[in-house]
Every structure is written in structure tokens, then in C-alpha cells.
Design a protein around this nucleic acid. Sequence first.
DNA 1: ACCTGAACACCGTTCAAGT
DNA 2: ACCTGAACACCGTTCAAGT
Lengths: 201, 201
Amino acid sequence: MGGTGRSVKSRPLSAEDWTARALELLMDEGVGAVKISRLCSDLGVTKGSFYWRFEDLESLKEAIAEKWCSDSRRALGNLAGLAALAPLERLRAMTLGLIDDRAWSVQRALRDWARTDEQVAATIAQSDTFMLEAVQQAIEELGSTPERARLRAGLLVYAGIGFAHGQSGLPKPEVSDIDDLIDFLAEDAEVGARSGQPPAT
Amino acid sequence: MGGTGRSVKSRPLSAEDWTARALELLMDEGVGAVKISRLCSDLGVTKGSFYWRFEDLESLKEAIAEKWCSDSRRALGNLAGLAALAPLERLRAMTLGLIDDRAWSVQRALRDWARTDEQVAATIAQSDTFMLEAVQQAIEELGSTPERARLRAGLLVYAGIGFAHGQSGLPKPEVSDIDDLIDFLAEDAEVGARSGQPPAT
DNA sequence: ACCTGAACACCGTTCAAGT
DNA sequence: ACCTGAACACCGTTCAAGT
């Protein structure tokens, strides 16, 4: 059945062919399926072919990380780019994305690899920073001072990462909980705005 | 040099000998060091000896998880048991524990294993629930309603887990940030208490 | 340039045999 | 009861040889 395993001799495999299939495997079957031998049988070649394109497994993982982070950065950029959208709605959309995205299993694997691979760590760090700034800005637009917004954004982003790694017997937040959460942040932002310092020059 | 590698024939190895050494390895050298072959050379036996005590690697990991969770549960119990301590101080101590505990690398490995091992998952879930309840109760005592306290506790605990898994290029919270955070929760709790519903019967 | 084929090291697992 | 020793499967890695 179609798609995998080149039954006929076709064009040589590009690096993208390898990373694309590896990312598919990671999403569909988890980190345990990302093995050179598995990739080779899927792509219909022998291992030597892999080592023609990549130094070793690590460099494959780095390539996966870069592809995935650039993809998700683009997605988040689309959201943040909707400056037209009210900050409250934008924040809500981001938070929901934090919760239900099925691609969290990918992130878990990446963070895992990041622990022993500086390249991957740097890629992830950049991606996290981007997310934090988007959230912080939305909260600022709700009326918090930059410092307050940074604290709240950090709390929210860290909680999102934690949720992804938890799976944890802890009650999974419902959509209504998300709404309460946003209310929580918004309500406080108003307090901050009302009693607030004037914005720093 | 002393400690590891029984140079002389001594008493047979108990299951605890194996799990204790494995936990040491996990804390000192990370998850990559927890290998049967490594354990065997450390303990001065051959692999068959391991398989006399354990079914396979999975069951060793389950044993590690149980040992570690029961240890940390006791530690947290000591904190929560200090009902004498003002809830604000208790909450602060717990949150600081969430941040600086060097044993986070262990938790990361356990959550990783939990993904493919139901036993480990159950052990972790129980540990998480215990933590959540302790935090929730402290926040309730600050004057929040149970529902509000649950939301805030969940946010805090998830953020702690996320922080442990992040390492993430995001700015690591300073102690002063923790204080701001506690203020944030406390301040809101007061708001909740002032405008609050009467506690449910 | 791109890939095969065979080899090797390392690790988990099994099992008959030893004490 | 507790462990050895040797075997096997699986996976990552290397490399000479093929087209």
C-alpha cells in the first residue's frame, strides 16, 4: 500500500526525504520509532545510504528539530500576526494551542534530545523565547506592566510545557478552565492597570 | 577506589542493592548511565545476576520509580505536615522546592519512562496528585474558594513541571520572581475572599 | 554522487550449567 | 538460591567496493 518503500528505483534520497520521514515516524509512532534501521527499511535502502547524508543519529535529530521548530514558528507567527485580533482572543487561541496540539509528543522528544545535544537545545530555546514574547505582548496589551506581563507569560508558558510533559494523572484542564485562566490573567491585568504605575518611558 | 565494585566475595545482591545503585547512577550521570551492563560492572557481577532479580529493564525502572516517589512523598509530607507554618510560608517553601531541587533530572527520566510503562505512569500520577492537593490546600487557606484554588494550584504545579523540563533558554525565575508569584496568587486570593461566594456546604 | 554488503561494537535477553 | 558464561538479536557505525 502506497507511499513508503520505493518499490522501483527512483531518484536519490535527499536530506529532506530522510528528515520528513523521520518526523512522520516521530509523530505517528513516537520517539521509539526513530531508528536508522527503521528509516532504511521504510525508504527501501541500506544503512550506508543514511551515513552518506548524515554524520550520525545526532545530526538527524538536529535536522528534525530545525524543521519542526521552523514549522511551528510559522504557525505561531500567523497567530501573533493577527494584531487585528483582540489581545484577549489572541491569548485564548495561543493557550488553547498550548493544550490540544497533538504535536506535543514531538516537543517532548525534542526537549529530551536537547539535553544531550546543544544544537537541538539552541533551536528549542529560540522557539520558546518566541512563544514567550508573543504571550507577553498579548498580556501587556491587556493592560499589564511589562514586568507583570513577563511573570504571567512565563507562568503560562511553563505551565503549557508542564502540561505537555505531565500527562500526569493530574486533571486535564477543560476548555472552561482555560477561560477561567484567561479571566484570571485578564482580571489581574485590569487591577494592574487601575492601580498601575505609568508605563516606563 | 572505595564503594563500588565488590572486590571480595560478599553477600548476595538484594533487589534494593540494584535499585539503589541505579538511582545513584540516574542522579549522578543521567538517564544514559542506567544500563544493565553498567550496573553489572559497578556491582561486580555478570548480567545473568540481574535477570535473577528482575524480569527485565522495565521492571527495574518501575522499582526506581517507586523508591523515588516514596522518598519525595515523605519529603513533601514533612512540609505539608507543618500545618503550624503559615500557609503563605508553606506555599513559598513548596514553590522554592519546585524550582531548585536538583532531583529534577530524576523526575524527567521517570516521566519519560512513564510514557511507555503504565506502572511508572501510575506511580508518578499518584505523586503529582499528592503535590497538587498540598498546594491547593495552602492556597485555600489563603482565602480562595476551592475552585479558584484548584485552578491556581494546577497552574503552579504544571509550571513547576514545565520548568523542570524546560531548561529552555527561557529566563530561569529568580527567588524574587517566586516572591512576586506568591504575591500574585495571594493578592488574588484576597480579592476572591472579599468578593467571594460563601464556601460550598 | 549515491548506494550495497559485510563487518564490528554495544546492549538487552535467554538459558544451560555451575556452586 | 544465586551467579557464570556463552550465545543470540538488534541497533548504530564504518568502510571498501560497486554503479
